[in-house]
Design a protein around this nucleic acid. Structure first.
Lengths: 157, 157
DNA sequence: TATTGTTATACTCTATAACTATA
DNA sequence: TATAGTTATAGAGTATAACAATA
């Protein structure tokens, strides 16, 4: 198979071999494509998809512990510390040390943080609708289901 | 929807909202899953999926220009310079300045580079078979086709 | 003037280990 | 002793701009 998948216009053809039907390669390109759409549609504020996901999850789970958040999103604790620190500095998130376990940290969005999440909701839905737009409803649901199946398989940690 | 997708075992449940059926989030988790399998099955040599893809593509397209390689893989030229330099240092790749256009650089694998690609082929196929194993043949083909469709849509640059 | 690739810089993400404070 | 999170460090990816050589 050649470059047709990728469109380098009138450019020289590139022999891709098996690559164009390889899951890993397609996942990478799909992710790039998704980011592209995300930036075009949603974020004028410089917040990246991954960061916004962190904020969303804190908003959905007030009082969530930082470590659980890190494990849920497969982010290393050391990195999560920095991510959260940035959001605290930006006034979007509050950290609390609970008296029951003073080693731990629980997180919640501030009013400003919640307002930001809410304000992004419309653009986010538009973006997701646009992503769906490539497919029929049935195809999109299939794709989601297949990805969920792939992820769920043998999920140890 | 809750954390069932993610399996944090006996841990506290995390409310995921829409996230668990969001394409971007699922693509990220699928990619992590893929890397995990890749490292487990293929690479004892410390070469990452992305690096190996670069090497594979050079092997498939001897004399390919570096800029075209960068565009094909959506890697920035500045980064490609470093990637290629590493492979040249490792003795896997050769750079040539062609007389027709002495600004450019063409790439080819060395014998050692080709031997490395070949030696990885078996493990790579085993890994890809294992990835397929999550699905029926029909499901896997569907997933590949749906990802290709997503990527191909409106592909400008 | 435009193009190819390089260098330089800066920021983010990833990975690891050492550290602290609590349990 | 073990756990939760932090700090420190290093490597790799990403992005941008300035630059040299060549077209």
């Amino acid at each position: 198979m050649n470059v047709s998948l990728l469109d380098l216009s009138a450019e020289e053809e590139v022999e891709m071999g098996e690559l164009s039907s390889t899951l890993g390669f397609l996942l990478r390109l799909a992710q790039l494509k998704g980011f592209q759409g995300y930036y075009a549609a949603v974020s004028e504020d410089g917040m990246k998809p991954g960061e916004f996901t962190v904020l969303r999850l804190i908003a959905l789970n007030p009082g969530m512990r930082q470590g659980l958040l890190a494990r849920t999103l497969r982010i290393k604790p050391a990195h999560m510390t920095k991510l959260v620190q940035r959001m605290v500095d930006a006034g979007l998130v509050e950290r609390t040390v609970p008296p029951e376990d003073r080693r731990s940290v629980t997180l919640a969005v501030t009013d400003e943080g919640q307002a930001f999440v809410t304000s992004q909701a419309r653009a986010l839905r538009a973006f997701e609708q646009q992503e769906r737009g490539t497919f029929t409803d049935e195809e999109f649901d299939q794709l989601i289901a297949l990805l969920q199946k792939f992820i769920a398989e043998g999920h140890s940690r």
